[in-house]
């Protein structure tokens, strides 16, 4: 587990680097090397660190520990083939963690980032709809059962494509430089993570690497089933490249538009889930 955990952190950060590089190439910029996010994490880990005078010490440090802890737990939940509801719960916890990051420092930029994190909670509703659609077909929320179902009936992406789209939107809403990245928009410097520097930022980078790895792995397992490890990694790279295309070609929305569109998508997905429940 320890080697796998280290691998997941580094591969997740590499995925974010590929994401960033692809966006740059689409926009005809050279962009940073694909391992830039790994270098970022290592650089921050060994920078001089302290806690700002205006910060709440406990919250400032605690959120970093919780952020890494919850996504480590999420990785083990997916590997064990446990319930997708636990992943959903951890995703919700991450929202609270983002809010905690923003409020802990005393900086208004961080606070605005935290507040935007809360107002964009509508982005999580499609995940709920996606889970409901999966449950209607597979009669179970255990990842191991979902894999078994797909071995008999084929990949779920062909059976419930809109549920896959809903989960894709959820992952997109968590991608940096995307249309829904209002929590870390440049007008807020770095949003909720503005005042977390040095080792605190390194911890956040580790959390982001793990989060990317877990969310993409969950997407592949839930909608394509059990695939060989090499294919899993390749699928994750391909999905992150498609996400990069969306991020590169769509401008960042204003907070109001971001919430409106996310709520609209959530509404459409709810209708889809009701339709599936009615016909299925």
């Amino acid at each position: 587990m320890i080697p796998y955990l280290i691998f997941a952190i580094f591969f997740g950060l590499l995925l974010l680097g590929i994401h960033r590089k692809t966006i740059a190439r689409i926009q005809r910029r050279p962009g940073p090397p694909v391992w830039q996010e790994i270098l970022h994490m290592l650089k921050f880990a060994f920078k001089v660190t302290w806690i700002p005078a205006t910060a709440s010490d406990t919250l400032f440090v605690g959120v970093v520990l919780i952020a890494i802890g919850i996504w480590t737990a999420a990785l083990f939940v997916v590997l064990a083939g446990e319930s997708i509801l636990i992943i959903f719960g951890i995703y919700m916890l991450h929202k609270i963690v983002e809010h905690g990051f923003g409020l802990s420092s005393g900086s208004p930029y961080g606070k605005f980032g935290g507040v935007r994190s809360v107002i964009s909670a509508a982005s999580e509703i499609p995940l709920f709809v996606s889970i409901a659609a999966i449950a209607i077909y597979t009669k179970s929320l255990m990842l191991s059962d979902i894999i078994d179902y797909q071995q008999v009936h084929g990949p779920l992406i062909f059976i419930i494509p809109l549920a896959a789209f809903a989960m894709y939107m959820v992952i997109l809403s968590k991608m940096p430089y995307g249309p829904f990245s209002v929590v870390e928009a440049k007008e807020l410097v770095s949003g909720y993570k503005t005042e977390h520097f040095g080792v605190w930022r390194a911890g956040l980078e580790i959390c982001n690497g793990l989060k990317s790895y877990v969310l993409l792995m969950t997407f592949v397992i839930v909608f394509f089933g059990a695939v060989p490890f090499a294919w899993l990694l390749l699928a994750m790279v391909l999905i992150i490249i498609t996400l990069a295309f969306v991020c590169a070609l769509c401008p960042m929305l204003s907070p109001f538009d971001s919430v409106t569109i996310q709520t609209g998508i959530a509404g459409l997905m709810l209708i889809y889930a009701l339709y599936l429940g009615w016909t299925g």
Partner: peptide, 29 residues
């Protein structure tokens, strides 16, 4: 591992480079 990993990562960074200087006051508006 869920308990150990965050504490290990943060403590390792602090052990190497924890600052002894005074805390700074960030921009507060």
């Amino acid at each position: 591992l869920v308990v150990d990993t965050p504490a290990f990562v943060i403590a390792l960074g602090l052990w190497v480079m924890a600052g002894n200087a005074d805390e700074d006051i960030p921009f507060i508006g």
